[in-house]
Amino acid sequence: MILEIAYFAWVRDRMGVADETVDLPANVTHVGALVAWLAARDGRGQVAFAEPQRIRAAIDGVMMGHDAPLAGAREVALFPPVTGG
């Protein structure tokens, strides 16, 4: 499955890119598996996703949990928690 991933804030800084297109392995079927796969892929991902529970995700612009399926998704945005003020 081809997926566009957008990174924001310190996740972007740690990944070294704002976005990328990836071809996901068949076993990456939900957000949590995507984060785990990105963390295991290389050193940048390992640093960016060292605390996966802190990562927030939006699938095609809609906030989702780590158990959300990726089937049919075009884009996943990954970012740290945000505060307003």
Rank of each mutant, 00 (worst) to 15 (best):
D60Q: 04
H30N: 15
E51D: 15
I5T: 03
I5C: 01
N27C: 04
D67W: 00
G61F: 05
E75I: 15
R56L: 14
A77E: 03
A73D: 11
L34H: 07
A57C: 11
A36S: 14
G45R: 11
P52W: 07
I5A: 01
D60R: 12
A36F: 07
G16P: 01
D13G: 04
D13H: 03
A71V: 10
T29R: 15
P25S: 07
W10V: 00
D19S: 14
E75M: 10
G72M: 06
A48L: 04
A36N: 11
M64A: 15
L3D: 06
A71T: 12
M63L: 14
G32P: 09
V47Y: 00
T83G: 14
M15V: 01
Q53D: 14
V35E: 02
Y7F: 13
V35H: 00
L78A: 02
G65A: 11
F49V: 03
A77N: 05
I5H: 01
A39I: 10
E4Q: 14
M64I: 01
A57T: 04
R12Q: 12
V82H: 02
A39S: 15
V11W: 06
N27W: 06
P52Y: 07
P69R: 13
V76F: 06
R74H: 12
P81K: 08
V82K: 08
V82F: 13
E20R: 11
H30L: 08
A73L: 08
I2T: 14
V62A: 15
D23Y: 02
F8D: 00
P52S: 07
Y7S: 03
F8S: 01
A58C: 09
G32T: 13
P80H: 05
G85V: 12
A9Y: 00
W37T: 06
Q53Y: 11
I2K: 14
W10G: 01
D19Q: 13
E20V: 02
L3H: 08
E51H: 14
A77M: 06
V76Q: 05
D42T: 04
A40H: 03
F49E: 10
T83Y: 12
L3C: 09
H66E: 00
Q53C: 03
D23E: 14
G43V: 01
T21H: 10
L70D: 00
T83I: 03
A68V: 06
I55E: 02
A36L: 05
G45S: 07
A73E: 12
R54F: 15
G32N: 05
A48W: 06
A6R: 14
A71N: 07
F8Y: 12
A57N: 08
P52G: 09
V47P: 00
A26T: 13
P81C: 09
P69L: 09
R12M: 05
V11K: 01
L24D: 11
G43A: 15
W10F: 06
M63Q: 11
V31G: 08
R54A: 13
G43Q: 14
A33N: 02
R74I: 02
D60N: 15
R14T: 08
L3S: 08
A6E: 13
A50K: 11
M64E: 15
F49Q: 04
G65Y: 05
A68L: 07
W37K: 05
I2A: 09
G61C: 03
P69T: 11
L38I: 09
A48R: 06
V28G: 08
A36V: 01
P81V: 14
Q46K: 11
W10K: 08
A26W: 06
R74W: 04
R41L: 13
G45H: 11
A68S: 12
D60I: 09
D42W: 10
D42K: 07
G43F: 02
V22R: 10
